[in-house]
Amino acid sequence: SRHTFEINGERWTVEGVSEELKEILRAAERASNDEAERLLRLALKLI
């Protein structure tokens, strides 16, 4: 499935992501810059 999210003013669209990964991306959208970066690094390990 496709998911579009915005982090630090940048929009991203990813396809074929699991519900778990979507949850991480949604958390990154709400997080501070440092926390968002940490969550994105974690998410990339899952891809």
Rank of each mutant, 00 (worst) to 15 (best):
S32A: 10
V14G: 02
L42W: 11
E23C: 13
T4E: 09
R11S: 13
I47R: 02
L42G: 03
R41D: 04
E20P: 06
E19Q: 10
G16V: 13
E20D: 10
E29I: 05
L21W: 04
V14I: 13
L40M: 07
W12R: 00
T13A: 05
L39F: 06
E29T: 08
N8L: 15
L40H: 02
V14C: 14
T4A: 05
L46T: 05
R2D: 08
E29S: 10
L21M: 09
S32W: 06
I7S: 01
E23G: 10
W12P: 00
R41N: 09
L39W: 07
I7A: 01
E10T: 14
L46N: 03
V17P: 13
E10R: 11
V14P: 01
G9M: 03
A43F: 15
L25G: 00
A31K: 03
E35H: 05
S32K: 08
R30H: 10
W12N: 00
R30P: 02
S1K: 11
E19C: 09
E15R: 04
E20R: 07
A27Y: 06
S18T: 14
F5H: 02
L25F: 14
L44C: 11
S1N: 14
E35T: 06
E6D: 08
H3I: 14
S18A: 06
T4V: 14
R38P: 02
G9N: 03
I24Q: 02
L25V: 02
A43E: 00
K22Y: 15
T13K: 03
L40T: 02
R26F: 12
N33L: 12
S18H: 05
L40P: 00
E29P: 01
V17A: 15
E6W: 15
A36S: 07
L46A: 06
H3L: 15
E23R: 10
V14K: 01
F5G: 01
L25Q: 00
G16N: 15
L25N: 00
H3Y: 15
A43V: 14
V14W: 07
I47F: 09
K22Q: 12
E23N: 12
L25W: 03
R38V: 11
D34E: 14
I7V: 07
D34S: 11
A31E: 05
I24L: 13
H3E: 15
H3W: 15
R30D: 08
S32D: 14
E6M: 14
E23K: 09
E6S: 03
E19D: 12
L25D: 00
